[in-house]
Computed example of a mutant assay.
Amino acid sequence: MYAVIKTGGKQYRVQPGDVIVVEKLDGDTGADITFDDVLMLGGDKGVTLGAPLVAGASVAASLVETRKGEKIKVFKKIRRQGYRRTNGHRQMESVLRITGISGKDENAKWDGKAETLTLAEKNARARGLAPRVEAEAPKAKAKPAAQSEIAETEAKAPKAEAKTTETKKAAAPKTAKAETAEKPAAKKAPAKKADKAGDDA
């Protein structure tokens, strides 16, 4: 189940367990936040569009941290006047984890299994640069083959190799012209230059 919410003048598509970065919200770390501005809901029962909001729908989230975003450089210049100004700005932002989505017909909650992420992975996930990796089902181990089957496969392998070598030998022999064309042309030895000292004498 997923939802599209509106906060800070922007829209976000969220699912339970997602980590998103939004404009700064009031609250301490670990505080619970509820979004009532739900524009769309999607789930097993279909998609519900709001006009403009979905009535009775809400998204619950917990505040992971409040931090400064990446630095933005502001550079001003007036040519031929010697005017240059460089400033930097870091916008305050809140990192949220979506804990649940509730609608009229169905609800969805995060199972609470925290993922172990490094700071770089956390930042990439929060900015939407790294997709969520679903846990893969363990692959079944191949059963060891019986000794008789192994012996049979080894006995068949040399015969197959012999057939391929015989077919190569049976191929038509190359003509004399083709052989001469394949050989690189012989390089001529450079002519020896007479010593200038011997000529002068």
Rank of each mutant, 00 (worst) to 15 (best):
N123H: 06
K104D: 05
A155D: 13
L96N: 07
R67H: 07
T167V: 09
E106T: 13
P173K: 13
N123Y: 01
S148K: 09
K122T: 06
E149R: 07
R125E: 00
L117C: 01
A135L: 10
W110C: 06
Q147Y: 02
E179N: 10
E93H: 08
A172N: 11
E65L: 02
Q147A: 14
W110A: 10
A157G: 02
E136R: 08
G82R: 00
K77V: 12
A55C: 03
L129P: 00
V133W: 14
A57C: 15
E149Y: 03
G112A: 08
T86D: 12
T165I: 11
I72K: 15
A124C: 04
A151H: 08
K77Q: 07
G112P: 05
T167E: 14
A120K: 11
V95I: 06
S58R: 03
A60N: 13
S102V: 04
K168N: 07
A60T: 06
T167P: 05
L53H: 05
K104S: 05
L96Q: 09
A145P: 00
V95A: 05
K73L: 12
A137S: 13
K174A: 09
E182I: 09
G103R: 03
K159T: 08
I72H: 14
K76H: 15
A162Q: 06
K68H: 06
D111M: 11
E121Q: 15
T175F: 03
S58T: 02
D111G: 07
K169V: 03
A61M: 06
E182V: 08
E149W: 02
E152P: 00
K104I: 01
V95Q: 09
K143T: 12
I78P: 09
I72Y: 15
A170G: 13
A157C: 00
L117T: 01
K141R: 01
A114L: 14
G103D: 01
P131D: 07
T164P: 00
R80A: 14
G69S: 07
A61H: 10
A181P: 02
L119K: 15
A126H: 08
A57H: 15
A57S: 14
A126E: 03
R84S: 13
E134F: 11
K104A: 10
T165Q: 11
G128I: 05
K77D: 13
S94M: 01
T118A: 04
S102L: 01
A176K: 10
E152F: 09
E149L: 14
T175D: 07
H89M: 11
A142N: 10
A57D: 13
A145N: 04
L96W: 14
A176I: 12
R125N: 03
